[in-house]
C-alpha cells in the first residue's frame, strides 16, 4: 500500500491494437513520484500511443493503467485534474500572443488570478520581451518554452512531455533540458519520451526502452549500464563532435 502512494504512474499488461496492427503488446512499468522517467524508443515504437493512453486521449484495449491513483478508464476526470500534457507538436495558439495563450489555459483551469499566473510564467520562462507578440512570430525554441509554460499553468504534479526536443536546434534543446531539470528539482514528476539516448541519459532517473510494443529493459542509468560488459580502460583520442564545436563557437560569440 505504501508502495502505491509513492507511484505517480502504474501500468500493467497494457495492450492496444489498431485493427491488425498491435502497437502495444503488454507494457509494464512504474514511475515513482518526483522522478524523471524517460521512455526511449525509435519512431513508431508506440511511445506516443502510451502518452495518449496515460493522458486519457486514447482508450486502451486491456491492462491496468493508474495515474496519480486514478484509473484512466474509470476516472479520466481525476487524471485530467492532476496532469498536464505537452504534446509532440508545440500546441500553442499562433494567433494569440504568448501572454494570451497562458491566460487562456489559466481560465480553462478555472484559476482566479489568471493574469498573475501568466505573468509569473512569462518571467520564469524568459518570455518577457516576446509576451505580447503573436506566437506565430516565435522561434521553435521559444514556442516550445511557451508550450511547456502552458503545461505548468495550475501546478500539475505530473507533466507529460512527448518528444519535447524533436525538431529543435542544439541551443533550444539545451534550454529545454534546463527546464526539465528545474521541474525535477521542484519535485514535479516528469514523464518524457525521446528518441535520443543522450537526452534520456542527461535527464532521467529511470529509463525504459520500448521496442516493438513491449518494454525490453528498464531501470536507472547505472542499472542499464550493468547490463553491458564491464568497462575496459582504453586510451583514445577524443575528437570534438560537430555539436560541441558549434556550441563552443556560438557560446564565444555570445560572450563577446
Amino acid at each position: 500500500m505504501e508502495n502505491m502512494q509513492n507511484q505517480a504512474i502504474r501500468v500493467e499488461g497494457l495492450r492496444k491494437s489498431y485493427k491488425q496492427l498491435h502497437v502495444l503488446r503488454g507494457v509494464d512499468f512504474e514511475v515513482a513520484k518526483g522522478s524523471v522517467f524517460a521512455l526511449l524508443g525509435s519512431n513508431g515504437s508506440g511511445k506516443t500511443t502510451i502518452v495518449k493512453i496515460l493522458t486519457t486521449l486514447l482508450k486502451h484495449d486491456s491492462g491496468n493503467v493508474t495515474v496519480n491513483g486514478f484509473d484512466v478508464a474509470l476516472k479520466p476526470d481525476g487524471v485530467r485534474q492532476s496532469i498536464s500534457l505537452t504534446g509532440q507538436f508545440a500546441a500553442v495558439d499562433e494567433i494569440l500572443t504568448g501572454r494570451e495563450n497562458l491566460i487562456l489555459i489559466a481560465r480553462l483551469r478555472h484559476l482566479r488570478n489568471a493574469r498573475q499566473v501568466a505573468d509569473d510564467l512569462i518571467k520564469r520562462f524568459g518570455l518577457t520581451d516576446a509576451a505580447d507578440r503573436r506566437a506565430s512570430t516565435y522561434s521553435g525554441g521559444m514556442r516550445r518554452r511557451l508550450d511547456i509554460a502552458m503545461s505548468l499553468v495550475g501546478n500539475s504534479q505530473l507533466v507529460f512531455l512527448d518528444e519535447p526536443t524533436t525538431g529543435l536546434d542544439p541551443e533550444a534543446r539545451i534550454e529545454v533540458w534546463k527546464i526539465v531539470k528545474e521541474l525535477a528539482s521542484s519535485g514535479i514528476t516528469v514523464f518524457l519520451t525521446t528518441q535520443y539516448l543522450e537526452e534520456a541519459e542527461q535527464l532521467a532517473d529511470q529509463i525504459a526502452i520500448l521496442d516493438k510494443g513491449t518494454i525490453i529493459v528498464s531501470g536507472t542509468l547505472a542499472e542499464l549500464k550493468k547490463l553491458f560488459p564491464p568497462a575496459k580502460v582504453e586510451y583514445i583520442e577524443k575528437q570534438p563532435t560537430l555539436e560541441e564545436i558549434f556550441l563552443a563557437i556560438v557560446g564565444k560569440n555570445q560572450e563577446n
Partner: peptide, 8 residues
C-alpha cells in the same frame, strides 16, 4: 489534444 487532456 491539449484541451482534451485538461479537466474541461
Amino acid at each position: 489534444e491539449r484541451f482534451h487532456s485538461m479537466p474541461i
